[in-house]
Structures are given as structure tokens and as C-alpha cells.
Design a protein around this nucleic acid. Structure first.
Lengths: 148, 148
DNA sequence: TAATTTTTGTCAGTATGCTGTCATCATCTT
DNA sequence: AAGATGATGACAGCATACTGACAAAAATTA
């Protein structure tokens, strides 16, 4: 049983499991979007923007996704060229524009949700809400610790 | 409160949070190993091998880390050249060799543990073992679902 | 306000990871 | 045993991500 291990080993096990789950989730997303021509770098950006409430800047997306701002900047630049995203003036910051979904981007997101919603529901079908909630809380707690 | 959201949104939130935590954990590991000349591609391989009980093949490491076997193969080939790893005959498979830490690799791992252990202990200091355990169980459950 | 620090955009260079492909060997099925 | 299926190693091409560096703008502090 995992609970018989010392806490340290338990945690390191969790860390490796997060790496693995990360890879599997990307595979899942890629499988869901393969007929839409979206790479994981792109649907992650779309999802991050769609789930945000107040709009996101490029460095903001990078923070949410745990990536470098340069990597995100490169992707969003290309996605603006491909008309999936638009840059909008940011009332709170003159240089750092807000990134929004274009109409085409919104279409892509709704297409994504058509497969993502059933996937999410099926995946969590046999998992109690409380378990998801406590796990999310722990993950957020760890994020807070590591986020400078 | 997160628990007032529908389960689907809770889960999608967890997914994005796993992406973010994944990035932050890599940053943490890189910070710990920066004076040892290890990249995250390398310390992940070292950790995966060190935590395995029966030895791992290249595709086995890839499965544990949630990556492609080609990516791992490339890294392990270089790490064997750099004398951090050794390939050993696999009694259970003629072509697929076992990957082990060399003496130098073991030194690197013990150096890694000198910083990793205090880090793990400090990180989980204010987190009950039960929470870690339930979170690990949930993550493993998700991994099982997605791992073909 | 002035000085300092932080954030952001941008570019260059490099490392890592993925897909697709093919041949080879292992394992399973019949 | 023979054939079918699956796993593995190897290679090529490409996408993605990181670091470091620099300048400009913003935010913070004195």
C-alpha cells in the first residue's frame, strides 16, 4: 500500500505520476483534436483563454500553462496569423495586449467542446466530486508553493 | 468554491492545473540540478530508473514518464555515451536491453537526493499523508484510464 | 519626481519531443 | 511449426520549448 511508504516517497511517486499523467492528457487532447488540425500547443492556449474570466495576456497564458512566455508568444503569433486568435488593446497595460479567441477560434473551441465534454463526463463518471475537489485543492496548493 | 462547479468543469480545471504543476515541477527539478549539469530530460530518466524495482527498458521508461520511446531512446543513448547509464542484457527480452545507472550515474543520483529529499520533506511539511495518498490514488486512477 | 526594479516583446541558438516509417525480433494464435 | 500481431531500435523531418540576451515600457520604491 502506498500509505505505508514514508511521506517523502509518496510525494516523489506523486511527482512522477504527474509527469506521466501530463503526457497522457496531452495524448488524449491530441486524439480529440486530430481532425481539427490543432496541435497540443494550440488547444492548450485555446483552453486557457476560454477558461479565463478577465482575459489573458501572453505572459498570463504562460503562467497558467506553466510554460515560458517566449514559447507561448511564438504560438500565439502564429495563431493570430492563422486567425484563431486576435490581439486586443489592454486597458490595464499599454504594451501587453489581451489575447482573445477570434470567431474562428470560438468555432474551434466549440468543436473541441463537442468531444471534450463527453470525454470529461465519461472520465469522471465513477469518481466522486469530493475526490476531484480534494485533488484539485492539493494540486493548487503545490502550485502556490512553487510559483515563486 | 470549486465544489460548486459542475464536475466537468472541476475536472477540466484539474487538467489545466496538472499542466501547470508539471511545468513548475520541471522548474523545481532544474533548479535543484543546475549545478550538476543535468537537464530535466536527464534527471527524469535517472529518477525513473532509481525508483523502479525490477529494472526498466527504454520503452518502459517512456511509459513511466508519459513520453515517446524515441525521445527516451535518444536521451539514454547520449547518457550512456556520457557514462551516466549502462545498457545490460535483458533476461526477459533479447533485443530490449535493461537500462541501469552506472557508478557515475549513482553518484549523480545521490547528489540529486541530497537536495531532493529536503525539498520533498519541506514541500509536504504541512500536507497530511492522507491527502497525498488520496491524490496519488486519483492520479493513478486517471493514468489507468488513459493508458490504453 | 527620480531612480530602481520588474515586466514584456523580440531575437538567436539549442535541446527536447513528436510523428511517421521501416526493418527486425518477440510474442501470441491457430 | 507457421503465420499474425505486437514491441523495439533506428532514422528523418518537423514542432515545440527553453535559455540567454537586449531594449523598451511599466510598476514600484525612495
Amino acid at each position: 500500500m502506498a500509505s505505508h511508504y514514508p511521506k517523502r516517497v509518496l510525494f516523489l511517486d506523486l511527482v512522477l505520476s504527474v509527469f506521466r499523467l501530463n503526457g497522457l492528457l496531452i495524448s488524449e487532447g491530441d486524439a480529440m483534436t486530430q481532425n481539427m488540425g490543432l496541435t497540443h500547443a494550440r488547444w492548450k492556449v485555446i483552453a486557457a483563454i476560454a477558461l479565463s474570466t478577465n482575459g489573458l495576456t501572453v505572459p498570463g497564458i504562460a503562467r497558467v500553462l506553466g510554460q515560458s512566455r517566449q514559447a507561448v508568444q511564438r504560438i500565439t503569433d502564429v495563431m493570430v496569423q492563422d486567425a484563431l486568435l486576435v490581439y486586443l488593446p489592454n486597458p490595464r497595460h499599454k504594451r501587453s495586449v489581451l489575447v482573445r479567441l477570434s470567431d474562428e477560434g470560438k468555432v474551434a473551441y466549440s468543436q473541441l467542446r463537442e468531444v471534450q465534454d463527453p470525454w470529461a463526463i465519461a472520465t469522471t463518471d465513477d469518481i466522486p466530486t469530493e475526490e476531484l475537489d480534494t485533488a484539485l485543492r492539493l494540486v493548487r496548493r503545490l502550485i502556490q508553493k512553487f510559483d515563486r
